[in-house]
Amino acid sequence: MSPRTKEQNEEIRKQRTQEILQAAILVYAEKGYAASEIGDIAERAGLARGLVYHYFKNKQTLFRELYTYMMEGTNRFTKSHFEQEGSAFDLFHTYARLVCNQVLEKPAISRFYMRISLDVHYLFTPEEFSPFDWMKGFMRPMTEAIEKGMSQQSIRQGDASLMAAQFWGGVSQGMNYLDRLQQELLSQEIPVQEQRERLEAAIKQVVDSALAIIRPA
Protein backbone atom coordinates (compact mmCIF):
# COMPACT_ATOMS: atom_id res chain seq x y z
CA MET A 1 0.00 0.00 0.00
CA SER A 2 1.39 3.37 -1.00
CA PRO A 3 1.92 5.93 1.76
CA ARG A 4 -0.64 8.73 1.91
CA THR A 5 0.23 11.98 0.25
CA LYS A 6 0.46 15.28 2.11
CA GLU A 7 -2.86 16.30 0.54
CA GLN A 8 -4.54 13.09 1.72
CA ASN A 9 -3.24 13.56 5.24
CA GLU A 10 -4.54 17.12 5.26
CA GLU A 11 -7.96 15.97 4.06
CA ILE A 12 -8.08 13.34 6.82
CA ARG A 13 -7.08 15.97 9.38
CA LYS A 14 -9.88 18.26 8.24
CA GLN A 15 -12.42 15.44 8.30
CA ARG A 16 -11.43 14.29 11.79
CA THR A 17 -11.47 17.85 13.09
CA GLN A 18 -14.98 18.36 11.71
CA GLU A 19 -16.16 15.09 13.27
CA ILE A 20 -14.82 16.18 16.65
CA LEU A 21 -16.30 19.67 16.45
CA GLN A 22 -19.71 18.37 15.39
CA ALA A 23 -19.67 15.88 18.27
CA ALA A 24 -18.68 18.67 20.66
CA ILE A 25 -21.73 20.69 19.61
CA LEU A 26 -24.02 17.78 20.52
CA VAL A 27 -22.33 17.12 23.86
CA TYR A 28 -22.30 20.83 24.74
CA ALA A 29 -26.01 21.18 23.88
CA GLU A 30 -26.78 18.40 26.34
CA LYS A 31 -24.33 19.16 29.17
CA GLY A 32 -22.91 22.65 28.86
CA TYR A 33 -19.21 23.41 29.06
CA ALA A 34 -18.41 22.50 32.66
CA ALA A 35 -19.89 18.99 32.43
CA SER A 36 -18.63 18.19 28.93
CA GLU A 37 -15.67 15.81 28.84
CA ILE A 38 -13.26 14.83 26.08
CA GLY A 39 -14.36 11.21 26.57
CA ASP A 40 -17.99 12.16 25.90
CA ILE A 41 -16.99 13.97 22.72
CA ALA A 42 -14.80 11.09 21.53
CA GLU A 43 -17.61 8.60 22.12
CA ARG A 44 -20.13 10.77 20.25
CA ALA A 45 -17.69 11.15 17.34
CA GLY A 46 -16.97 7.43 17.27
CA LEU A 47 -13.27 8.04 17.82
CA ALA A 48 -10.71 6.93 20.39
CA ARG A 49 -10.20 9.38 23.26
CA GLY A 50 -6.49 9.55 22.48
CA LEU A 51 -7.20 10.55 18.90
CA VAL A 52 -9.16 13.58 20.06
CA TYR A 53 -6.14 14.63 22.14
CA HIS A 54 -4.04 14.26 18.99
CA TYR A 55 -6.02 17.13 17.46
CA PHE A 56 -6.80 19.16 20.60
CA LYS A 57 -4.50 19.23 23.63
CA ASN A 58 -7.39 19.80 26.08
CA LYS A 59 -11.08 20.68 26.39
CA GLN A 60 -10.48 24.41 26.45
CA THR A 61 -8.48 24.30 23.20
CA LEU A 62 -11.21 22.26 21.54
CA PHE A 63 -13.99 24.61 22.60
CA ARG A 64 -11.99 27.70 21.68
CA GLU A 65 -11.71 26.37 18.14
CA LEU A 66 -15.37 25.36 18.15
CA TYR A 67 -16.40 28.83 19.31
CA THR A 68 -14.34 30.51 16.59
CA TYR A 69 -15.62 28.10 13.94
CA MET A 70 -19.29 28.61 14.88
CA MET A 71 -19.11 32.37 15.28
CA GLU A 72 -17.24 32.90 12.03
CA GLY A 73 -19.92 30.83 10.29
CA THR A 74 -22.66 32.94 11.86
CA ASN A 75 -20.96 36.15 10.79
CA ARG A 76 -20.53 34.93 7.21
CA PHE A 77 -24.15 33.83 6.97
CA THR A 78 -25.53 37.06 8.43
CA LYS A 79 -23.31 39.26 6.28
CA SER A 80 -24.12 37.42 3.04
CA HIS A 81 -27.83 37.36 3.83
CA PHE A 82 -28.15 41.10 4.36
CA GLU A 83 -25.99 41.89 1.33
CA GLN A 84 -28.65 40.42 -0.96
CA GLU A 85 -30.63 42.67 -3.25
CA GLY A 86 -34.27 43.50 -2.59
CA SER A 87 -36.41 44.98 0.14
CA ALA A 88 -34.52 45.34 3.41
CA PHE A 89 -37.72 44.57 5.33
CA ASP A 90 -38.15 41.31 3.41
CA LEU A 91 -34.55 40.36 4.22
CA PHE A 92 -35.26 40.78 7.93
CA HIS A 93 -38.43 38.72 7.60
CA THR A 94 -36.58 35.88 5.88
CA TYR A 95 -33.68 36.03 8.35
CA ALA A 96 -35.95 35.80 11.37
CA ARG A 97 -37.76 32.77 9.94
CA LEU A 98 -34.52 31.02 9.00
CA VAL A 99 -33.11 31.46 12.49
CA CYS A 100 -36.35 30.31 14.15
CA ASN A 101 -36.64 27.28 11.87
CA GLN A 102 -33.10 26.26 12.80
CA VAL A 103 -34.17 26.00 16.44
CA LEU A 104 -36.60 23.26 15.44
CA GLU A 105 -34.55 21.58 12.72
CA LYS A 106 -31.10 21.72 14.36
CA PRO A 107 -31.77 22.20 18.08
CA ALA A 108 -28.23 21.34 19.19
CA ILE A 109 -26.75 24.11 17.05
CA SER A 110 -29.28 26.62 18.30
CA ARG A 111 -28.64 25.63 21.92
CA PHE A 112 -24.94 26.13 21.38
CA TYR A 113 -25.52 29.71 20.24
CA MET A 114 -28.02 30.39 23.01
CA ARG A 115 -25.77 29.09 25.81
CA ILE A 116 -22.19 29.78 24.77
CA SER A 117 -22.23 33.44 25.84
CA LEU A 118 -22.46 32.19 29.45
CA ASP A 119 -19.31 30.10 29.03
CA VAL A 120 -17.03 32.39 27.03
CA HIS A 121 -15.13 33.29 30.21
CA TYR A 122 -13.94 29.66 30.41
CA LEU A 123 -12.41 29.94 26.94
CA PHE A 124 -10.91 33.42 26.65
CA THR A 125 -9.47 36.07 28.92
CA PRO A 126 -11.03 39.56 28.78
CA GLU A 127 -7.93 40.71 26.89
CA GLU A 128 -8.38 37.98 24.27
CA PHE A 129 -12.08 38.42 23.64
CA SER A 130 -14.66 41.17 24.08
CA PRO A 131 -18.31 40.03 23.83
CA PHE A 132 -19.33 43.64 23.25
CA ASP A 133 -16.99 44.03 20.29
CA TRP A 134 -18.08 40.69 18.84
CA MET A 135 -21.76 41.58 19.12
CA LYS A 136 -21.12 44.98 17.57
CA GLY A 137 -19.48 43.29 14.58
CA PHE A 138 -22.25 40.71 14.33
CA MET A 139 -24.93 43.43 14.35
CA ARG A 140 -23.21 45.63 11.76
CA PRO A 141 -24.83 43.98 8.67
CA MET A 142 -28.25 44.38 10.29
CA THR A 143 -27.58 48.01 11.15
CA GLU A 144 -26.48 48.71 7.58
CA ALA A 145 -29.53 46.89 6.20
CA ILE A 146 -31.81 49.00 8.40
CA GLU A 147 -30.14 52.18 7.13
CA LYS A 148 -30.69 50.95 3.58
CA GLY A 149 -34.30 50.13 4.40
CA MET A 150 -34.85 53.63 5.73
CA SER A 151 -33.70 55.05 2.42
CA GLN A 152 -36.03 52.60 0.63
CA GLN A 153 -38.83 53.57 3.02
CA SER A 154 -39.37 49.86 3.71
CA ILE A 155 -38.21 50.35 7.32
CA ARG A 156 -39.35 53.08 9.69
CA GLN A 157 -37.03 55.90 10.65
CA GLY A 158 -35.03 55.71 13.87
CA ASP A 159 -31.70 54.83 15.43
CA ALA A 160 -30.48 52.01 13.20
CA SER A 161 -28.11 50.50 15.76
CA LEU A 162 -30.77 50.45 18.46
CA MET A 163 -33.36 48.98 16.11
CA ALA A 164 -30.96 46.23 15.02
CA ALA A 165 -30.31 45.37 18.68
CA GLN A 166 -34.04 45.36 19.44
CA PHE A 167 -34.78 43.17 16.42
CA TRP A 168 -32.11 40.65 17.36
CA GLY A 169 -33.22 40.73 20.99
CA GLY A 170 -36.73 39.78 19.92
CA VAL A 171 -35.46 36.96 17.71
CA SER A 172 -33.02 35.55 20.27
CA GLN A 173 -35.61 35.57 23.06
CA GLY A 174 -38.02 33.90 20.67
CA MET A 175 -35.42 31.20 19.97
CA ASN A 176 -35.25 30.39 23.68
CA TYR A 177 -39.03 30.16 23.85
CA LEU A 178 -39.27 27.92 20.78
CA ASP A 179 -36.64 25.56 22.15
CA ARG A 180 -38.49 25.19 25.45
CA LEU A 181 -41.83 24.79 23.68
CA GLN A 182 -40.52 22.06 21.39
CA GLN A 183 -39.06 20.13 24.33
CA GLU A 184 -42.33 20.49 26.24
CA LEU A 185 -44.42 19.24 23.31
CA LEU A 186 -42.11 16.26 22.80
CA SER A 187 -42.28 15.32 26.49
CA GLN A 188 -46.08 15.36 26.39
CA GLU A 189 -46.22 13.01 23.38
CA ILE A 190 -48.55 15.36 21.53
CA PRO A 191 -49.42 14.20 17.97
CA VAL A 192 -46.86 15.34 15.39
CA GLN A 193 -49.36 17.39 13.38
CA GLU A 194 -50.50 19.29 16.46
CA GLN A 195 -46.86 19.91 17.43
CA ARG A 196 -46.15 21.37 14.00
CA GLU A 197 -49.20 23.63 14.11
CA ARG A 198 -48.37 24.99 17.55
CA LEU A 199 -44.71 25.50 16.70
CA GLU A 200 -45.57 27.23 13.42
CA ALA A 201 -47.97 29.56 15.25
CA ALA A 202 -45.22 30.36 17.77
CA ILE A 203 -42.68 31.03 15.00
CA LYS A 204 -45.10 33.41 13.32
CA GLN A 205 -45.61 35.31 16.56
CA VAL A 206 -41.86 35.55 17.22
CA VAL A 207 -41.18 36.80 13.69
CA ASP A 208 -44.07 39.29 13.77
CA SER A 209 -42.93 40.66 17.14
CA ALA A 210 -39.33 41.12 15.96
CA LEU A 211 -40.44 42.77 12.73
CA ALA A 212 -42.69 45.18 14.63
CA ILE A 213 -39.49 46.96 15.71
CA ILE A 214 -38.64 47.93 12.14
CA ARG A 215 -42.01 47.87 10.39
CA PRO A 216 -42.87 51.20 8.76
CA ALA A 217 -45.80 53.06 10.27
Rank of each mutant, 00 (worst) to 15 (best):
K106D: 09
L98G: 09
H93Y: 14
Q102E: 13
R64F: 03
Q22H: 06
K57C: 00
A96N: 02
N101V: 09
Y33V: 03
T125V: 01
R64G: 02
F112A: 05
H121F: 14
E85L: 04
L47Q: 07
C100R: 02
A88Y: 02
L91V: 08
E128F: 11
F77M: 12
D90A: 13
L91E: 00
N58S: 08
L91C: 10
Y95S: 04
F82V: 01
F92N: 02
P107G: 09
Q60L: 04
A108C: 07
M71F: 12
A34I: 11
F56P: 04
L21T: 08
E65N: 14
K31F: 13
R13Q: 12
P126M: 12
G32Q: 03
S36W: 00
L104M: 08
G46N: 11
S130P: 06
A108H: 10
R16D: 06
K59Y: 09
R49K: 15
A23E: 03
V120Y: 01
E65A: 09
S36R: 06
D90N: 10
C100E: 07
H54L: 14
E11M: 13
F63N: 02
P126Y: 14
L98D: 08
I12K: 13
R115Y: 07
G86N: 07
P107A: 06
E10F: 10
E11A: 14
N75M: 15
V52S: 03
A88S: 15
M70A: 15
L62F: 08
I20L: 10
A145I: 01
A24K: 01
Y67R: 04
G137S: 15
L104V: 04
F63H: 02
R97I: 07
H54Y: 15
G46V: 06
R64W: 05
